[in-house]
Design a protein around this nucleic acid. Sequence first.
DNA 1: CGTCTATTTGAATGTACTCAAAAGCGGTGG
DNA 2: CCACCGCTTTTGAGTACATTCAAATAGACG
Lengths: 193, 193
Amino acid sequence: MKVSALILHLESFIPLKQEEKDRIEEQFVPQTVKRKHKLLTAGEVCKDYFFVVSGCFRMFGVDDKGFEHNIQFASEKDWIADIGSFYSQKTSQLNIEALEPSEVLRIPQLGLYELFNNIPKINRIFKVMIEYKYIELQNRVLQNFSSTAEQRYLAFLEQYPHLKNRLPNTQVASYLGITPEFLSKIRKDLRDS
Amino acid sequence: MKVSALILHLESFIPLKQEEKDRIEEQFVPQTVKRKHKLLTAGEVCKDYFFVVSGCFRMFGVDDKGFEHNIQFASEKDWIADIGSFYSQKTSQLNIEALEPSEVLRIPQLGLYELFNNIPKINRIFKVMIEYKYIELQNRVLQNFSSTAEQRYLAFLEQYPHLKNRLPNTQVASYLGITPEFLSKIRKDLRDS
DNA sequence: CGTCTATTTGAATGTACTCAAAAGCGGTGG
DNA sequence: CCACCGCTTTTGAGTACATTCAAATAGACG
């Protein structure tokens, strides 16, 4: 049952009453996503928040030269949405795309607001979740400034061991902010040493 | 009165009852901070959250070569803390330092938790605040990947006009992730063109 | 007024990118 | 089961963006 993964995840933050669980389950819609299919396309408004039950996604932007830059990956038990677009209901500059066949639980804006208004715990859980994500991003900014591409690659392997054998290197390179060619050279150097 | 700046700021998110305002004011301690004085030093635990009433701060990390990297600035009506350290009560790797003579309102961990537990609105306000900061950071990551130092400098000037004539260029360079020398060359090129 | 810090400038260097091309790998259809 | 296609990975040569180091100049604060 897909929804149980979500409830399990939420309860790892704060235990929920049965009545609360029921109300939460009501708002989520299960969805199967094919590889390369997009949950969000730049130019659209991000109307839903997604909880990843299985599979893997990337969120990326495209610069003026047409190059894609991965901002984050999301796999099992992770959340993904362009929260800037979601809360403002302005068009998004970002894309969310499945890197594998995946299953998600989708909650539309109104459904989530319903939960925020009626279940205070959900507010607290979402506050804590975004705090974690904020800390992660902050570390990433700091790391991008203070270390070489090779050090960042090694740090990525340590921090996301469950992703390293699952993603093509071109996706990892895009996440690290380097070209696939350069990542290939880094990997060669690491093998040789 | 220092505290009124805080209440005004909070009410820009959600209106508060007089009773709530009183409870909030109780928890904050006004503090004057001299230039170059630190609110947080790497190696300590971040025990307080700060609201900046006047002045300006930088938060920075130091890499293994001893170079400082500015993660964020905080001036009037902004909040600053190493939230990773604050919530986990583990030692921080970051420093928070006044760039100008400043005034802050300090709230200790217990005081903030008291507010979180007794005033649900405060939870929602802090959730929204961190969401804004998250979006800002995300844009910064994307920009660092997709544009040159010159473009990032121009974007910085546009995004933080109130800071541009207030900060030494070495601080701006550290925020942009470049050397002061290179920023100087960028500024020269912009003047010449 | 002196000291300390910030800014500018230049030459040599390094890290990562561009472009091009070849080799590898996995899946699909005949 | 093999051949082919698309996509990823590797390799190399030349280049660009940004750094390092050093030194001169300018500014700011006490």
